[in-house]
């Protein structure tokens, strides 16, 4: 093995996607994903036990598929990496157990790593080495975090997070109010294209006065979600049609306005010149457009991995594992726990 080009397999099972990725150094060889999203759709959210059962059935076939597609033999791996947390406890455990079994049977080191740091690290396979420090805005159905990242393998500092709903969760809930299917993000994005984002002035949480002072880089989306559903109910009660496109566009604007405003303020305050956006909401076209415009006028370099690498996947775990190997981090050992509430300050279990 060349120390700067380790061959690492990463496993991700923190929610409803069974992801297995393989990287060599900064090069992505394969990103195999099996999703159980369809099984959850009718429940309007992820059912943990359904997700865990699906992970168990998909695990070995996904490992097999990843190796076949990459032309990699398991015996050639230099290390195995796995999401140790945060995430759904039962789901995490399937991936952690599989990764340990791989490491044990192959006699390779294992790195139990933080899912959030992996969302940041994955961009190295897309856009090359990560400038450090980087500011990371992670937005998905499970996380809404602003992170200052001096060293993605060892030093990740949370500046702010959501105090209630995650951004993606707000998309799901508003989609339900508008009669759009789960998951809500892509459907709202599509509906919003035909709408006027200035039609309705929905509230922006934690952006003014005392709220802003106390929650400088935190987010709150539950008030916005409530405001949208009240607005829709009033229209319906008055017997009027609900302008779905306008509501979707105005809601989406409120979310991405707050996200980008705070992310850029954090970059300025900490003198950081690179902003990275990750998580499933990073696939949102308006978030990408507004972030690009605001970063450009602020002189900040914006990095957003392609949508397939923004959602949960094994490649991001492999990418962080590869960096951990290259930087000589100590492996986690076969007894490391799966930690459903792993703090982001803990990059490795």
């Amino acid at each position: 093995m060349r120390p700067d080009e380790p061959l690492v397999l990463g496993i991700e099972t923190s929610c409803d996607e069974t992801g297995v990725g393989i990287v060599r150094g900064h090069t992505l060889l394969v990103d195999a994903v099996a999703s159980s999203v369809d099984e959850h759709a009718r429940f309007g959210g992820v059912v943990p036990e359904v997700a865990s059962r699906a992970h168990l059935e998909a695990m070995v076939p996904t490992i097999e598929r990843a190796c076949a597609q990459a032309g990699v033999r398991l015996g050639d791996l230099d290390a195995v990496a796995v999401t140790a947390g945060p995430g759904l406890a039962g789901a995490l455990l399937v991936g952690v157990a599989a990764a340990k079994a791989l490491a044990l049977a192959l006699d390779t080191p294992i790195y139990g790593i933080n899912h959030l740091a992996a969302h940041v690290a994955v961009d190295v396979v897309e856009h090359g080495p990560l400038p450090e420090p980087t500011m990371a805005l992670l937005v998905s159905g499970g996380h809404s975090s602003l992170l200052l990242v001096p060293d993605v393998t060892a030093d990740v500092r949370p500046l702010g997070a959501t105090v209630d709903d995650a951004a993606g969760e707000a998309f799901d809930k508003v989609a339900r109010v508008l009669g759009l299917p789960f998951p809500g993000g892509p459907h709202i994005d599509r509906a919003a294209r035909d709408g006027n984002r200035l039609a309705i002035d929905f509230p922006r949480g934690f952006t003014t006065g005392r709220d802003l002072a106390r929650h400088r880089f935190d987010f709150s989306f539950s008030g916005l979600k409530t405001a949208v559903s009240r607005w829709v109910q009033l229209r319906q009660a008055a017997g009027e049609d609900v302008p779905v496109a306008d509501v979707a566009a105005s809601f989406q604007e409120a979310v991405v306005d707050v996200l980008t405003r705070k992310a850029i303020a954090a970059c300025r305050e900490h003198g950081v010149e690179t902003l990275l956006i990750g998580g499933g909401v990073a696939a949102n076209s308006r978030l990408r457009a507004l972030a690009a415009a605001r970063c450009e006028s602020a002189g900040i370099q914006l990095r957003v991995p392609r949508p397939g690498l923004c959602t949960d996947n094994g490649a991001m775990v492999a990418a962080l594992g590869s960096l951990a190997v290259s930087r000589g981090r100590t492996p986690s050992g076969l007894d490391h726990p799966a930690d459903s509430s792993m703090p982001v300050t803990l990059v490795q279990a």
């Binding site: 959210g45 059912v47 359904v50 998905s140 789960f182 998580g279 949960d312």
Partner: peptide
């Protein structure tokens, strides 16, 4: 059978 109670604070399929 699994308890079909969605975990609403879990991430959705948005990643």
């Amino acid at each position: 059978r699994p308890d079909a109670v969605p975990h609403l604070s879990a991430k959705s399929a948005l990643g």
